[in-house]
C-alpha cells in the first residue's frame, strides 16, 4: 500500500511542477486537475475515502469549473474558436493523460485487490460526522457564515459593472437634456438613447 501512496504523491508533485512550468492557462488547468485527482487518490489510500470523494467533487469539480468559466469569459471575441483550436492540439493531451492514466491504473489495481486502504489507519466518515456536529458545531456555523459572506461578496463584485454602465447612461441622458424617466427601461443595455 505504501507503494501506491508514493506513486500518487509523485504524480501530484510532477503535475504541480508541470502546471507551474506551463505558460498557457488552459494547459496549467489540465495539470491542476491531475494534481487534485492525485491528492484524492492519496486520501483514498491513507484511509479517508469520504475526503477523496469530496476532493474530486468540490476541488476538481466545482473550483476547476469556476476557473474554466473565467478563462472563457476573458477570451471572448471572434478569434476565440481559433484560439481554442490552437490550445487543444492533440499533443497537449499527452502529459495530463499519461499522469491520469497512472492514477487510473493505480485505482484499478487497488479496487481489484479488494480492501484498498491501509485498514489499520482508517478513519470512518461516521466519526467525522459525529465530531463535526459535536465539538466542532461552532465551526460549522462559522463555515456557513463564511459561505454566505462569499456569496454576497461575489455577487457584489460581479454586479458592479452593470451598475456603473447604468450610472454612465443616466449621466449621458441628463447631459443631453433627455427626461431620465423616459427611458428607464433602456438603462444598462446597449441600445442607443432616444433623443427628443
Amino acid at each position: 500500500m505504501e507503494v501506491a501512496f508514493y506513486i500518487a504523491a509523485a504524480v501530484a508533485i510532477i503535475a504541480t511542477m508541470l502546471m507551474l512550468r506551463d505558460l498557457n492557462v488552459v494547459h496549467a488547468l489540465l495539470y491542476l486537475i491531475v494534481s487534485l485527482l492525485a491528492v484524492a487518490v492519496v486520501f483514498y489510500v491513507i484511509g479517508a475515502p469520504f475526503m477523496a470523494a469530496l476532493e474530486v467533487i468540490i476541488y476538481a469539480g466545482a473550483i476547476v469549473v469556476l476557473f474554466v468559466f473565467v478563462v472563457m469569459m476573458l477570451n471572448l471575441g471572434e478569434h476565440a474558436v481559433a484560439m481554442e483550436q490552437r490550445w487543444l492540439t492533440p499533443g497537449i493531451w499527452i502529459g495530463p493523460t499519461a499522469l491520469a492514466g497512472v492514477l487510473l491504473g493505480e485505482v484499478a489495481y487497488l479496487a481489484a485487490r479488494g480492501g484498498a486502504q491501509m485498514e489499520a489507519q482508517m478513519v470512518a466518515p461516521k466519526q467525522v460526522g459525529i465530531g463535526l456536529f459535536g465539538p466542532y458545531l461552532i465551526g460549522v456555523e462559522l463555515a456557513s457564515m463564511l459561505l454566505l459572506a462569499g456569496l454576497v461578496g461575489a455577487y457584489h463584485l460581479g454586479v458592479r459593472r452593470r451598475q456603473r454602465t447604468e450610472i454612465r447612461h443616466a449621466r449621458d441622458t441628463h447631459e443631453r437634456r433627455v427626461a431620465p424617466s423616459s427611458d428607464v427601461v433602456l438603462a444598462g443595455t446597449d441600445r442607443p438613447a432616444r433623443t427628443p
Binding site: 479517508a48 469520504f50 475526503m51 469530496l54 476532493e55 468540490i58 476541488y59 466545482a62 473550483i63 469556476l66 476557473f67 468559466f69 473565467v70 478513519v123 467525522v128 465530531g131 463535526l132 466542532y136 465551526g139 463555515a143 463564511l146 459561505l147 459572506a149 462569499g150 456569496l151 461578496g153 461575489a154 463584485l157 460581479g158
Partner: peptide, 21 residues
Amino acid sequence: GQIVFLFILTMAATEVAIGLA
C-alpha cells in the same frame, strides 16, 4: 484532521469565488 480539511475546503471554495470575481 478530516474535519479541519472540510473547513479548508469551504474556505477554498469561498476564496476562489471572490478571487475570480
